[in-house]
Amino acid sequence: MIKSMTGFGRGESRDSVRHFVVEIKSVNHRYNDIIIKMPKHLNYIEDRIRKHIKNKISRGRVEVYINLEYMDDSTAKVQVDLPLAKSYKEAIEMLNEKLDIRDKITIDLIAKFPDVIKIEKQEEDEDEVWNCLKNGLEEAINKLIEMRIREGQQLAKDIKMRAENIMDIVKAIEIRSPEVVLEYKNKLKNRIEELLGDNYELDESRLANEVAFFADKSNIDEEIVRLYSHINQLISALDSDVPVGRRLDFLIQEMNREANTIGSKASDIIIKNKVVELKSEIEKIREQIQNIE
């Protein structure tokens, strides 16, 4: 079952101290790019978060937003830097004296200066924080994956339909290919007779050699066989339980290469038109698989 790389999930978890809200969204990306935005004082669990996500999601740009709200202020402590406050007060008094200003120095004024009053979070137990966060993270990831699966099912349905269209086009090219050689032989024979008249005796062996050369030059049997193989592999991969985005991308590249080769070998307008249809369907699939994990 294939998955899209686009999705969104939200989860919550709490204990007696903290309340986490986790939101995850993912979009297309060639690799597994994880971006985590959370309170700075939780940076020590970033590796755990990243590893947990990578175990569940193998491809895509994943953005994680973690919001933390404490249930009470027991983890916060107000710190006052008295020496720094005293230095600020002395500096203001010196300015008053030097500039002959008699403004009052208030607590409000001193408290506004940087780092005089700081709120520090008390050190928390890493395992305790992680155990609380993990539940919300897991919920968000599961909802994200559910959305990716739903969209992946729609993508697989569309790709299978287009793969069947490609199969029909390749079959039409396969049927047409031997007819082209026969038509070439008849046209060449008629042209020779038209130019040289009835008195000229046609050399059947030379004609056969010319037709054989044309047939060999325009032969597309190998390309058709490989296209059938690539199509069957593509359809089979859509039912796989493992990420197949990169494999599908490779198959589409190979299919496009075979289509180009057929187009370059073909001198028949019907086959050339079929190649245009073929490449159009391949390109539509290529666009779709850019969003597959």
Rank of each mutant, 00 (worst) to 15 (best):
E151W: 13
I289A: 05
N67H: 15
E139K: 15
H230N: 03
I166D: 08
K143C: 06
N186G: 00
R30C: 01
E293F: 02
G263Q: 08
D103E: 10
A91Q: 10
V78A: 06
Q288K: 01
G136H: 11
S13Y: 02
K279E: 10
N273V: 00
E283A: 07
E69F: 11
S4I: 00
D72E: 08
D72L: 10
E93L: 14
E201D: 13
R191T: 08
S26F: 12
I92L: 15
L248Y: 06
I173F: 09
L238K: 12
Y184W: 00
I53M: 02
E258T: 01
I92E: 10
K217C: 04
M94K: 15
G7D: 03
Q79Y: 14
S205D: 15
Q290G: 03
L251M: 01
L144S: 05
F213P: 00
R162I: 00
D100H: 15
L227C: 12
M1Q: 05
R150I: 10
G263W: 04
I149M: 12
E277L: 04
I282P: 02
E124H: 09
S16E: 15
I117E: 11
D125N: 15
N32I: 03
N209M: 13
D249K: 05
R257H: 02
F8T: 08
Y31L: 06
G7V: 06
I145V: 07
L278G: 07
D100P: 04
S87D: 14
G60V: 02
D15W: 03
G263N: 03
D203S: 05
N256R: 03
I2F: 10
I149N: 10
D158W: 02
V181N: 03
A266H: 01
S16C: 14
K189T: 13
D73G: 09
K171G: 12
K265I: 04
L188G: 00
E174R: 13
A259C: 06
S240E: 14
I224E: 12
E223H: 07
F214L: 05
G263C: 08
A212Q: 12
